[in-house]
Each structure stands twice: as C-alpha cells, then as structure tokens.
Design a binder for these strands. Structure first.
Lengths: 332, 332
DNA sequence: TTGTAGGCGTTATCAA
DNA sequence: TTGATAACGCCTACAA
C-alpha cells in the first residue's frame, strides 16, 4: 500500500538518468525532444505522480497556505474560506485549515502547526483575546494576513470591512425609518469588529441628534441562542425600544425569534437590522435587512495580499478595507 | 524571510551532534537526561520548530488527509467538513480541502493534487457523473472514504446516510398528515442519494396504497433558485398536489418561497418536507419539517474509517450507514 | 544533450 | 550514551 513511482523508477524504465527524467517532467529546454517524449510516455505508463513533499523540501516552498479561523461551518466564514481556497488554487496553492473554536490555546496551537507544516503563508482571523500567536507569527517571518480584524496598536497586513460605515448606514437607516430607541446587540468589545460597529452606531445617533445611551448597548456572546436569550431579557426588563441593530445576522435571527415570541411585530413594532448578509438573510421571514460584506471578495483579497507577500518575499503592510453595503429588505 | 532553525543549528549551538538533537526532540530513551534538557533548552531559545515537510519525506507519511467536496460553503458540507477537521486534529492530522464545484474535471484534478501531496488518505464526496477519479484512487492504493454517496456496482469504503429510510419517513409522515398527491422535487437521478430518496418515496406510497405516478417526480438541479423556478412551473402547469417532498432543505426553501408567492399557505394548503436539517431549517418561518442527518457524526465516522485504514495499512471495505431522523416542525 | 553528485531537514542504522 | 552516515524524492550545479 502506498508505494509511489519515483523518478528513479521512471529513469530505469526509460533507460536514462534521473535528471533527464526531471528535465522532461519540468519542461526544461536542455533535453532532446525524442528523449523527452519517451520519458513522458514511460512516466505516464508507470503512473508517475510527482511527490510534492520532496519538491517542497528541495525548494523550501510548499505551495500550501494555512487558514485559521474560529468556525469554518459558520455561514460567514465558510464562504470566505471557500473563496480563499478557490483563489489559492488559481495560483497553484492548496490550503490547510484549522478551527479554533474561539479558544486562544487552540489558535496558538494552530499557528504552531502551520509553522511546522512550513506553509508559505497564513491567513488568520484571530480571536483577539490575546495576541501571543500574532507575535509568534511576526517573529517567524512567515507572511500572514489578518482576516476580518483590525489592530489599532500595530500595523499589520489586514483585510477587513468598513464596519464603522456599515453600522453607521444600518443605524441611520433605522433612524430614517423613524426609530429613535435603538438597542445594539453587540459582540464582545475586545473585538475590533464590535468596537467599529459601536463607533458607527454612535456616529449615526450623534449625527441625528439622538443622545447615546450606554444602557442600550449589550455585549452578548455570539450564537442565535445567546442573542435570543438576551433579547428576551431586554424585553422583560421593560426597556423601551423600537429598533434593534444586531452584531450579525445570526444574532438578528435570534432577536427576531424572541421578539416574535413576545408578541412584537417586525418591522411594525420593532425594526431589526443584521450584519454580514449571510445566504439565509433573505430566506428567513421577514427577509432580513442587513449590511452586506462581500465574503467572496474578502477571501480573494486576503489570498491575493498574502500571495503578493509570498511572491515578493517581503511584508506588504497594507490594510485593505472592503466597502460595505446596506441591503434593505423587510425587517425595517 | 523564512529561514527556519534546523536541528543542525540546534546541534551546533548545543555542542552536540544532530541526532542527539533528534533524540532529545523525539523523546527517545537512549539519551542522557542532562544532554536532553540542554538540547531542549537550546532548541527553545533558538525557536526551533520541526519541519513537518522533511519528516513526511523521511517517514513516507504526511499526517495530512485530503477532503474533496463540491462546495465547502454549502451549509450541509461545511458542517461535515468541520467535523472531519476536528476529528482529524484529535489524531494529529491536518486537512487539505478542495472544492469541485460539481465539475468532474476539477474533481479529478483535485484527486491528482491530493495524490501529489502524498496525503495519507482522502475523503471524497464524488459528483457521480463519471468515476474515473475513483478508479485512479483505487489504483493509487491510497486509503479513501466515499462520503455521502453509495456505489451499487463496487464495494468501497463509504459513509452515507440511510436515505431510503429517511425519505420513507418523510413521505409516510406527509401521508399521515392526509396528503395524497405528493410532488418529489428530486436531485439528478444519476446520484445515489437521489435514487435512494426516490426509492423511499415509492416505498412509502406503496405501503399506503397510493399509486406511484412518475409525473410527480421532478429532477431538478440543486440550488434555491432552481427549485423555486421548478415549483413555480409545476404550479402553473396546473398539476394537483397537496404535499412536496424536497431533495434537501435548500430546495425546500425555494419551494416554499414559490408556494407563498403563488398564494398557497404552508402547511394549510400544502405540506413541505425538506432533507438534511441544516442549521437554518428551524430558523425559517414556518420552521421546516425535515429529515436530520447527523452531520457531525458523518464527518467523524468518515475520518475514523479513514484513520483505521491508514493505521492498519489496508482497505477496510466497510459501508457505514448512518441512521436518520424525522424532525417534525411547522411545514407539515 | 545527458549524467554525476550534493543537498533540502529529518530519522534510523550502525559503529564508536 | 553519542556520533557519523545514509536515505526519503526531487532539483540544480557542474562535468562529461
């Protein structure tokens, strides 16, 4: 089991030396045409398949990139991941991915694994709880791109979306719909994304002369269940509100469920806006108004930035900020 | 950029030979305790990270498996894929995945790439249009597991769900709800899954003494849009029906959308059952009645079967058929 | 145009 | 207990 044909085997069968085989296989010029054809024929007959492992070792390049994210089955990330894979493949790269489950230890372990695999580059969506692994990456001098996150303190290659603008658009839209008391179901504020979205929220309120009220902002762990429960809690607390801006579509779905159960009509009584525009945002009922991030583009851009670094063999300290779009549907 | 510390560097810095370093790193017994500690210390100081590429070449084992599927962002596959990755990691394996976009050429190319990468095993969800790549895999004598598909003609290691039973349950349930004219929005029948589900459909009708009518079976390409359009078509054709059994949840969503647009109430006028129980099945409104496949288990089982083959170094010609469960919600 | 030899980073065999 | 050496499969100087 698992005995592969080597160039040595091909060489012997074709009656030439191993590097004549190598030359034939790699389209080198310095080889006789007939020899080449013969070698290629023999290689095919024997079912030769080049060992990328050996080539990697020889070249010091694996043509593999690593992708590290919290949950590859999440409808947002799964689309980004797919886009990365497709973009990578177009350039002859394969991708190894690892899930961190939002666990920093797993994230750091994933980084070490990728480094050990000698991937040519890494795309990572860090949890932002700690950033020791990012330090590790910087020291390792392996090209990497931060995905979906922006670090204020250090300048790093990043691809993320313009979420200040996104949430500004979302909240302004709510206000234009006549909503004045807008709950923000936020993610944890140690995450740059949550902070940016909070900033946009505040900006929109401010521009519309609505005072910011901290008691309308709730930091809630991600997941439908969590936002569902938090929404129930908010309703039961008696807080007055007529709009809900959600950290993402998933949490919007949870919120809408809670609202419905408590007898609120969406959007008649309460308007809801989500974020991300995952595929299901326009299949749920009522169709979700949300802020669209172009996930395919995000994945592609992340790979292309990484690729540029791999090719140029140097850090390209560029922050690519993707534009974002409000998609008005039926929940507002 | 990208200069890694090698055991050679460690050896020099520690004043020992390279294989003393190797011994220390790999917890070999025949090494002096102090030497070992010193080596480990130096290795850590220098930031040594083992090169898995070299180890792979040496051992003839990469500790990488390949996963080939049509669309890693599909809510069904993305969950299975994640489960595979998690299971693999527990055993010290990493995973490279490739999307085929239901294109046989890409699928075959993916197989070649995986072979070239010398992955220790492959999990593949084949399109079933052609199967030359499966032949290739068999010849290559690399362990592989077929995911979500059953081949009648050849006995191969497979993990798939009991879809005859699943659709039998679904259709029986529709009948018990008083439905008699049940449309089957099928996938293409060259796929084993579609055939199995058709069989269950027929079986349920037969047992309930409802004659099978070919004109109620529609082969439709996957995707919400396609099932949406087909459903519109069916309605406009004037066909009488009171139930719709869908190939999967995605197609159920499309069908429900069409029904709603055409003024049908679900489930009052028409009952609808989906298949897969993707995460969103219970977020859409009305909540979708569907047949649940345990996606996590499917991924785990696929990996474990593969792992068994890798460990035993021989084909384990086992077909693992996962049980399936009817989840009654609000569309029936 | 072709072949020989060395090396990529590891690990295993054998000898010291 | 330790060290020298060969080998995994490939590619590239260099030599022929």
């Amino acid at each position: 089991m698992k005995k592969f044909v080597t160039i040595r085997d091909v060489a012997k069968a074709a009656g030439v030396s191993i590097n004549t085989v190598s030359r034939a296989l790699n389209n080198k010029p310095d080889i006789n045409k007939e020899t080449k054809e013969k070698v290629l024929k023999v290689a095919k007959e024997l079912g030769y398949i080049k060992d990328a492992t050996a080539t990697s070792l020889r070249y010091g390049l694996t043509k593999v990139i690593g992708v590290i994210l919290e949950d590859s089955s999440n409808p947002f990330y799964s689309e980004v991941l797919k886009a990365v894979e497709m973009a990578a493949r177009r350039r002859g790269f394969n991708v190894i991915f690892m899930n961190t489950e939002k666990d920093y230890e797993l994230e750091e372990e994933a980084v070490r694994t990728m480094l050990s695999r000698r991937v040519d580059g890494i795309i990572i969506a860090p949890t932002q709880e700690k950033s020791g692994d990012i330090q590790l990456l910087m020291k390792a001098s392996v090209p990497f791109v931060i995905l979906g996150v922006h670090f204020d303190e250090i300048e790093l290659p990043e691809v993320y979306s313009n979420d200040v603008r996104g949430s500004y658009l979302a909240v302004s839209h709510l206000i234009e719909r006549g909503r004045k008391k807008i709950v923000y179901l936020s993610g944890f504020l140690y995450k740059s994304v949550a902070r940016m979205r909070l900033e946009g929220y505040r900006k929109a309120l401010h521009e519309h002369l609505i005072p910011f009220d901290q008691s309308y902002v709730f930091e809630v762990e991600e997941g439908v269940e969590n936002s569902y429960r938090k929404m129930i809690e908010i309703i039961e607390s008696g807080l007055e509100f007529d709009g809900v801006f959600c950290f993402n579509d998933i949490s919007a779905i949870g919120a809408i469920q809670a609202l419905r159960e408590k007898g609120y009509l969406v959007p008649k009584d309460v308007s809801v806006v989500g974020y991300d525009d995952i595929a299901f945002a326009h299949f749920i009922q009522p169709r979700l108004t949300t802020v669209r991030i172009d996930k395919q583009r995000e994945g592609e851009q992340a790979f292309e930035l990484l690729y540029e670094m791999i090719k140029r063999k140097e850090i390209v300290n560029k922050q690519i900020v993707l534009d974002v779009e409000l998609v008005v549907r039926e929940t507002t």
